[in-house]
């Protein structure tokens, strides 16, 4: 049995689904699963981590931990890791995880495999595979040296386990000893859409240049809202000013891995495919039967998105209402 240490993530008092993925994977493989949770007024969330299989939840609360900074968080996590000596440390490849884990790796002088899409436990080791060249190839990561093995896992890559309310974790409160902090979050300005983030959503509805205007994206937003989906965009749509850059999917945008990716009027340029090729099911709607997106799509419709998207919205609504 390996000791696995997981960086739990919460924002605004809600745990992230990607944290449940990590805890579920480690605990269902039979490992001693520790989680660390940082913030202010977050200890109530420890119970839920227990339901997914965390054996021990270490909770650090402090006003300087209310918002994540790599500096303050690593000052708490690194000494804790040293006292627990885990074999494996896992985080999500989320905005927080991808920023924090390299700090921890550097302080522990140990190797980190980032953005892994496959994870297997083998004794006290992990076997991980990750995409390189924007998903045009994948590699296995070999860890050199004896330190703990660190990895960040792409959200949605492992799947969310079913919680078991019969399980509970031991909660350990730790009192953080913070040194000088040179970085400080002054404010967080909330995104206004209310829709999930493209990188975290289990369904993404994306549109391209063919939408022709920012206003026309409304039909995709309406479809997305029926599905609880995020709205993504091609770079051509972003460059034309139809969508903000944070919605861009692709090699120079976000990499997404939802269970369903619906590409509407997107040609399927190599740089776009890089951002969504690991999606579980890909659907393409395009007027051009030769569009490269159809080579990657599991299901395709040759047709006009302006006709099809509203029809799909109606049909999905029926399914959702049943």
């Amino acid at each position: 049995m390996a000791k696995v240490f997981i960086i739990a993530e919460q924002r605004d008092g809600r745990l992230k689904k990607s944290t449940f993925e990590l805890i579920g994977a480690a605990s269902s493989a039979g490992h001693e699963t520790h989680a660390v949770l940082l913030g202010e007024g977050v200890s109530g969330l420890a119970t839920e981590l227990g339901h997914y299989g965390a054996k021990t939840v270490h909770v650090a609360e402090h006003s300087a931990l209310k918002y994540y900074t790599s500096e303050a968080y690593s000052q708490v996590i690194v000494p804790l890791v040293k006292s627990i000596s885990p074999h494996i440390i896992l985080g999500s490849h989320s905005p927080t995880g991808r920023d924090l884990m390299p700090r921890i790796a550097a302080q522990l002088e140990t190797g980190l495999a980032s953005d892994c899409t496959q994870l297997r436990f083998e004794g006290n080791q992990i076997q991980v595979r990750r995409p390189v060249y924007a998903g045009k190839a994948t590699v296995e990561v070999e860890f050199l040296g004896n330190g703990p093995k660190l990895a960040t896992i792409r959200p949605n890559a492992l799947g969310i386990p079913k919680p078991n309310t019969g399980l509970s974790a031991t909660v350990v409160q730790i009192s953080p000893h913070l040194g000088t902090l040179r970085t400080r979050v002054l404010d967080v300005v909330k995104g206004s859409s209310g829709r999930p983030d493209v990188t975290e959503a289990s369904i993404v509805v994306s549109g391209g240049r063919s939408l022709k205007s920012a206003e026309n994206f409304k039909i995709l937003e309406d479809l997305a809202d029926v599905l609880g989906a995020a709205v993504g965009a091609s770079r051509a749509a972003v460059d034309a000013g139809f969508r903000p850059h944070r919605d861009q999917v692709g090699q120079t945008g976000k990499v997404v891995s939802p269970s369903l990716y619906l590409a509407c009027g997107i040609s399927g340029a190599i740089q776009h495919l890089a951002g969504m090729r690991t999606s579980k099911v890909i659907v393409a709607i395009n007027t051009d039967p030769e569009a490269p997106i159809f080579e990657l799509a599991d299901y395709g419709i040759v047709g006009d998105l302006f006709t099809l998207v509203p029809l799909l919205q109606e049909e999905f609504k029926k399914v959702k209402e049943n």
Partner: peptide
């Protein structure tokens, strides 16, 4: 600290299903 090995290209995708009929 780490080394990449056993490079693979993504498996070729099976041709997808085209859905026909009126919209």
């Amino acid at each position: 600290k780490i080394r990449y090995k056993n490079f693979q290209l993504p498996p070729p995708k099976q041709a997808g299903k085209k859905i026909s009929g009126d919209p």
